[in-house]
Design a protein around this nucleic acid. Sequence first.
DNA 1: AATAATTTTTAGACAAGTCTAAAAAATGAT
DNA 2: ATCATTTTTTAGACTTGTCTAAAAATTATT
Lengths: 218, 218
Amino acid sequence: MFSQSEENYIKAIYHLEVSPNKGISTNAIAEKLETKASSVTDMIKKLSEKELVAYKKYQGVKLTFHGRKVAANIVRKHRLWEVFLVEKLNFSWDEVHDVAEQLEHIQSPKLINQLDALLGFPTHDPHGDPIPDKDGNLNMIDKKLLSTLEINEIGLCVGVEDSSSEFLQYLDKKNIELGKTIKVIEKEEFDNSVIIEINQKRISVSNKIANNLYIKTS
Amino acid sequence: MFSQSEENYIKAIYHLEVSPNKGISTNAIAEKLETKASSVTDMIKKLSEKELVAYKKYQGVKLTFHGRKVAANIVRKHRLWEVFLVEKLNFSWDEVHDVAEQLEHIQSPKLINQLDALLGFPTHDPHGDPIPDKDGNLNMIDKKLLSTLEINEIGLCVGVEDSSSEFLQYLDKKNIELGKTIKVIEKEEFDNSVIIEINQKRISVSNKIANNLYIKTS
DNA sequence: AATAATTTTTAGACAAGTCTAAAAAATGAT
DNA sequence: ATCATTTTTTAGACTTGTCTAAAAATTATT
Ligand SMILES: [Mn+2]
Ligand SMILES: [Mn+2]
Ligand SMILES: [Mn+2]
Ligand SMILES: [Mn+2]
């Protein structure tokens, strides 16, 4: 249907569209895909030709309805594969992304439907990100960054903003896992670090951590 | 490591090398990959450059030791994925090949090792073909085509020569499955069809079937 | 051994995807 | 409003993998 490159571009644009706002800039796409702006312009023209994006010179780019469906399906596959790798093949959450980046391009509706069933129709991937359904709908849960919580607020770890190996391994080392309960004990004005209670212990986490960990307050 | 195209060529040559015999002809590769002879010549030069094949103009091509290892690993991945699709995702044996053709190109040694473990270290794929181990060794079982059996010989269905959907679905319809016992009752000289006993019933199978079904006689 | 048929290679072209360098447009600062 | 900076697009080139048509080499036939 679409080439691997085309799919990667579509997905990048999808992830850059936080709300149905302005067009996405050529540079933003280039940065996300670690490519050059000129290459992005070239590809955008092709995607526009195929009506996956709406594009007017110098005005950035937006996904069409169809483009958004295509993107959601790629994201669906990516996240289902990540769940598979963790649940069935004993990968840890910091190892799955690169492999999923390849697996997301496999074309077989039956494969992905059966995988979904094998995994028990999961709603979120190992990093807490929602898995789009067959129609591309995803149910966002209401979560906030740890850094935005008030003192004494209690919540559940439900996701990460940064999915880099380094960050995930750091969380592992600190025994911070999705599903665990966190309470904010103290917020340090000086460096914006936060003292939290988790695993019946009090630990201090830097602002960088607090800015990349999502909490669901009930 | 290698491109998808390069991998497909290497695998095709591997499959065409029945015994360590003559070099494989350009035309044979072209036919197997449904491409043109000129394209094959081009690619062969690249593979030769990378020392995956030994090539002398007009003399055909042979895998090097290294090339054979690379090929066996691709075949290993292909067959393990086929087992996965059948055992874990409820695919039937006639549906797996095309998806495996894509999955075989995923690069991740951990993925394939864990998959192997999840499946219980299978030795054969759903069509009865042996799965190479990590070093590329495969244990061939001693099997013969049904058409070569004598009257009253008894054996186990262990593989198919032709893996086309059409043939596999035909076997399904006739209730012929790998693992079942077959006895040759009669061989018809006229059209080379064979009357066999399977599932406690006697049925006649055409020469075309008998030439594509492998039997292991104990 | 000479000629005919077949196979293989070469030459030249094309599409996809990428890059660098330069031109054009948009944005920001005085 | 003018000039400077940044962003985006264009122009031209390169790589990979493919193709068609023609040339060269091999193999088969008389
Ligand atoms: Mn991911
Ligand atoms: Mn990808
Ligand atoms: Mn197969
Ligand atoms: Mn393949």
